[in-house]
Measured scan of single mutants.
Amino acid sequence: KSEISQVFEIALKRNLPVNFEVARESGPPHMKNFVTKVSVGEFVGEGEGKSKKISKKNAAIAVLEEL
């Protein structure tokens, strides 16, 4: 299972809201860097990556460590 689906499963079991959002985009158009924030109830994680998908996955990994 992907880290993102694990976050949603845990949140569902604990009845917590999940929110993913792109917090920052930086860099030139051909080499963008994304920072995504995820919140699961009061737990927050942040991930960085060269694409929105990678930064979302890294944010999920960060919040899984707290859950």
Rank of each mutant, 00 (worst) to 15 (best):
L67P: 04
A23R: 14
K56C: 04
A62S: 11
R24L: 11
K32Q: 11
F34E: 04
E21Q: 14
K53C: 07
T36M: 01
I61T: 07
K13Q: 12
K52S: 06
A59C: 02
A59M: 01
I54R: 08
R24S: 12
E66C: 13
E48A: 14
V63P: 03
I4V: 12
S55Y: 00
V44Y: 11
E42M: 11
P29D: 13
I54Y: 03
S51I: 00
K53N: 08
L67M: 14
V40Q: 04
K53Y: 10
N15E: 08
E46H: 14
S2H: 04
F8A: 07
N33K: 14
S39T: 15
N33F: 07
K50M: 11
A23V: 15
S51V: 03
E42C: 10
E9Q: 13
N15H: 14
K52Y: 07
M31R: 14
H30T: 11
H30S: 11
V18I: 10
V63G: 05
S55H: 00
A23Q: 14
V44H: 11
N15P: 00
P28L: 08
L67W: 05
S51N: 11
V22H: 12
K1R: 10
K57V: 09
K32L: 09
E9R: 08
Q6P: 02
F43L: 11
E9S: 09
E21C: 11
S51D: 09
I4M: 07
S5F: 04
G41K: 00
A11L: 00
P29N: 14
N33P: 06
E21P: 00
K32S: 10
K52W: 06
L67R: 01
S39G: 04
G47T: 00
E42K: 13
V35D: 04
N58I: 03
K13E: 09
A60N: 01
E9K: 11
G45M: 03
V7P: 02
L67Q: 05
L64N: 05
A23Y: 12
V7M: 07
G41R: 00
F8Q: 09
E48C: 15
G27D: 08
L64D: 04
K53D: 09
A62K: 14
S55N: 01
H30W: 06
K32A: 13
V44P: 01
S2A: 06
K52V: 08
R24V: 11
V63H: 01
F34H: 04
S51H: 00
H30F: 07
F43P: 03
F20V: 10
R24W: 08
K52G: 03
P17E: 12
K1D: 08
V44K: 13
S2Q: 07
E3S: 09
I4A: 02
V63E: 04
V18Y: 01
V63R: 02
G41Q: 00
N19V: 11
K57L: 10
G41I: 00
K57T: 15
V18F: 01
P29C: 09
A59Q: 01
F43W: 10
L12M: 14
K1C: 10
P29S: 13
N19Y: 10
A62L: 02
F34D: 03
V18N: 00
I61G: 09
F8H: 14
I54H: 09
R24F: 09
G49D: 04
K52L: 08
V63F: 01
E9F: 04
I4L: 07
F8L: 11
E65F: 02
S26Q: 07
I4C: 06
E25A: 12
E65W: 06
F8D: 06
E65C: 06
S2M: 09
V7S: 02
N19W: 08
K52C: 05
R24N: 09
H30G: 13
V35K: 15
G41D: 01
G45S: 10
F8R: 11
L67F: 06
E65N: 12
N15K: 14
S55A: 11
A59F: 00
K56P: 00
F43M: 08
A23H: 15
F20I: 11
V22T: 14
L12K: 13
K53V: 09
K50V: 11
A11T: 02
F20Q: 02
K37S: 06
M31W: 09
E21L: 10
N58T: 03
G27H: 07
G27F: 05
S39E: 10
G45W: 03
K13T: 08
E9P: 02
E42H: 14
V44E: 10
G47A: 06
F8I: 09
E48R: 15
E25D: 14
P28K: 09
L64T: 05
E9M: 07
G47K: 01
E48I: 15
S2V: 02
F20E: 04
F20R: 03
R14Q: 09
G27K: 09
P29Q: 13
V63A: 08
V22Y: 11
A11C: 01
A59K: 02
V35I: 15
P28G: 11
V63Y: 00
E9G: 05
K37G: 01
V18A: 06
E9I: 04
E46F: 15
K1Y: 09
F8M: 10
E65D: 12
R14S: 07
S51L: 01
G27A: 08
K37W: 05
V38S: 05
L12V: 10
K32E: 12
F34C: 04
V38E: 04
P17G: 08
E25I: 10
G49T: 01
K56Y: 08
E48K: 15
K53I: 08
V44C: 14
S39A: 12
I61H: 09
V7L: 10
A23F: 11
K32Y: 09
G45A: 15
K53S: 10
A59R: 01
R24T: 12
Q6E: 13
K37N: 07
L67Y: 00
V22C: 12
K52T: 04
V7D: 02
P29A: 14
V7A: 01
L64C: 09
M31Y: 12
L16P: 02
P29E: 13
I54Q: 12
L67C: 02
K37R: 14
V63D: 04
S39R: 14
V22F: 10
F34G: 04
E66G: 11
V38N: 05
F34V: 04
S55I: 02
H30N: 15
V22I: 14
P28E: 10
N58E: 08
L16I: 09
I4H: 05
E65P: 06
E66P: 08
V40G: 02
F43R: 05
A62V: 06
T36K: 02
L12Q: 14
A11D: 02
N58V: 03
K50W: 08
P17N: 11
H30P: 09
F20G: 03
R24H: 11
N19F: 12
N15R: 10
G45R: 08
G41P: 03
K13V: 09
V35M: 12
N19C: 14
I4N: 04
F43E: 05
S39V: 13
N15F: 04
G27M: 06
H30D: 15
